[in-house]
């Protein structure tokens, strides 16, 4: 395989809190190949957004540090990139869309104004040329009657429309990588389905790579080709999507899949993962998931597990389970 477009290697991110530095992201590695769609999934607080923000280096410099690891974009380490390089990359090479489309749009500027601003900054387009491109982009994200809606203010648009505008802004400069952090969580299911379909089409039309963050396994299953499962700041499993759902290796992945309420069958109770995700301040010896794990062994509480290959393309951070699976395969 060629060099991946984005390759996060052993990234550690720490935040300053009252008591010192806490590690929110620990030894995270993940790759996004050209044209790939990678899903990142995990409970709230598992470190998905922190990982995404690290790629674009949007963390507060004073209260954040990244003591180890690298983020290679086309082979260049973004952690060592100059400010000017980062500014160029943000928006024109790597774009990001956030969960809440209203707070990410400026309420006093029209849709067209906001999109043209991006176009001016990154592509030097102004005047009629910019206007033409704005309407083209709004059409691309399937906003009906684009020429008229372009002059609307954000509050005049519905949630789904605003998210489309966000996507239009994100793809304005034909980025090679789109990071979408819970792009549909604030939306209704029918609108969510429309947005996901739109993202899928755009990915094909613009041959973009996408990193899609969600805690909804349904969204991930439908959209991603590869899935990275995160728990308490670590990657616990990384696998192609069908393999992940057919043969999850890590008990956390199994728990997540089991907890999804079924639409096609009735069960007297939903399956849960007991307990709750620890915060970065909580010190848990050994495997961070061990206090909640149904399959926990004595050794799990002592030795922090390492990421191991299970089979081609699938790896997980649970040596005991991998051993069991291996034995069964032989």
């Amino acid at each position: 395989m060629a060099v991946p477009l984005l390759s996060i290697r052993n990234l550690t991110v720490q935040f300053r809190v009252d008591t010192g530095w806490v590690t929110a992201i620990d030894d995270v590695s993940l790759d996004v190949g050209t044209g790939d769609c990678v899903g990142v999934v995990g409970e709230s607080g598992s470190g998905k957004s922190v990982t995404a923000l690290s790629v674009l280096q949007l963390h507060d410099r004073v209260t954040t540090r990244m003591p180890s690891g690298s983020i290679l974009y086309q082979g260049d380490d973004l952690l060592r990139a100059k400010g000017s390089t980062m500014r160029r990359i943000r928006g024109s090479e790597i774009a990001m869309i956030f969960q809440d489309p209203m707070s990410s749009l400026n309420p006093v500027l029209t849709v067209a104004d906001q999109i043209s601003e991006t176009l001016r900054q990154h592509q030097g387009l102004t005047g009629a040329a910019a206007r033409k491109r704005v309407i083209e982009l709004l059409g691309l994200v399937r906003i009906p009657d684009a020429a008229r809606r372009a002059d609307d203010y954000p509050h005049r648009l519905s949630g789904g429309m605003r998210q489309r505008v966000m996507i239009a802004m994100a793809i304005a400069c034909k980025p090679r990588l789109l990071i979408a952090d819970e792009p549909t969580t604030a939306l209704d299911v029918t609108i969510q389905a429309q947005i996901l379909e739109l993202l899928r089409d755009l990915r094909r039309e613009l041959s973009m790579s996408v990193m899609l963050i969600s805690h909804d396994l349904g969204v991930i299953a439908e959209f991603a080709q590869r899935v990275v499962v995160m728990y308490a700041g670590r990657v616990v499993e990384d696998a192609p999507v069908t393999q992940l759902f057919r043969r999850p290796v890590h008990p956390y992945t199994m728990g997540l899949i089991a907890a999804v309420p079924a639409l096609d069958s009735d069960a007297p109770r939903l399956t849960t993962i007991a307990g709750r995700i620890p915060g970065p301040q909580e010190i848990i010896p050994g495997c961070r998931f061990s206090p909640r794990c149904a399959l926990v062994l004595q050794g799990c509480r002592e030795e922090p597990p390492s990421m191991q290959m299970v089979s081609d393309g699938q790896s997980a951070r649970c040596p005991p389970r991998i051993q069991v699976l291996d034995v069964r395969h032989v």
């Binding site: 709230s44 607080g45 969960q99 819970e182 969580t185 604030a186 805690h215 915060g279």
Partner: peptide, 13 residues
């Protein structure tokens, strides 16, 4: 499933 984002900071707190 709206607004899961708001959960993160509070978990730390």
């Amino acid at each position: 499933m709206t607004d899961v984002g708001i959960g993160a900071p509070a978990t730390a707190a």
